[in-house]
């Protein structure tokens, strides 16, 4: 497939717009906090929304190669790193709200949470696994790691699966949303495998 290259000038505009769009949920959250429209439980809202956005950006990042093919737009891969880092950013917010506000650094409680509640254990695992990916996202690290970089970053599929499981296990009854996430991830994985097989032939 012939996908036209992006001109550098256009890329600046694209990158700036994508950055602003991706930062919008964060900005909007502060606006709602300021306007007192977060509802009676703002801490819960912060916790849930940051988690939602971390997962959404993770899935968006994984969907980019497919978007590039289907819509024949080259620039999407040029914003992949940025969107991946946004996923990490929202994960950092999510974890910070949990540790610093929800549990208010009650390490005893936090340790118990991690040991006793599988969804917390998983959530912590997902967050820790995202750190090396964020750290090695620079050009320098890509060069230095060579082929191992790709191997390392392929783990994001496992991380996304575990993130969805973390979400699923945290709910008590209505698991519709994580199931939608799971089907999106599954569809992405199947398409990816299909394309790879076709190209291998």
């Amino acid at each position: 497939m012939n996908i036209p290259a992006v001109r550098e000038k256009e890329l600046v505009i694209v990158k700036t717009s994508v950055f602003l769009l991706a930062a919008l949920p964060f900005a909007q959250f502060w606006w709602r906090a300021y306007a007192h429209t977060l509802g009676p439980n703002p801490v819960e809202a912060a916790l849930h929304e940051s988690g939602d956005w971390a997962l959404r950006f993770l899935l968006i990042t994984l969907a980019l190669p497919l978007v590039r093919r289907v819509f024949a737009v080259a620039w999407v891969l040029r914003v992949r790193r940025m969107l991946g880092l946004f996923a990490f950013f929202y994960a950092v917010v999510h974890v910070s709200v949990y540790l610093g506000i929800d549990r208010f650094f009650d390490w005893d409680e936090i340790a118990k949470d991690i040991l006793k509640r599988p969804y917390i254990t998983l959530g912590l695992g997902v967050f820790l696994a995202l750190i090396p990916l964020a750290v090695t996202s620079t050009n320098g690290m890509m060069r230095r790691l060579g082929p191992r970089w790709k191997q390392l970053h392929r783990s994001v599929y496992v991380i996304a699966t575990l993130a969805i499981l973390h979400y699923l296990l945290s709910l008590k009854a209505d698991v519709r949303v994580p199931l939608i996430h799971a089907s999106i991830l599954l569809a992405l994985l199947i398409t990816r495998a299909y394309i790879q097989r076709r190209e291998a032939v």
């Binding site: 439980n41 801490v43 819960e44 009650d106 409680e109 118990k112 949470d113 509640r117 969804y119 945290s170 008590k172």
Partner: peptide
Amino acid sequence: RWSQAKER
């Protein structure tokens, strides 16, 4: 799912 030691 939830520690019951505290409440908000």
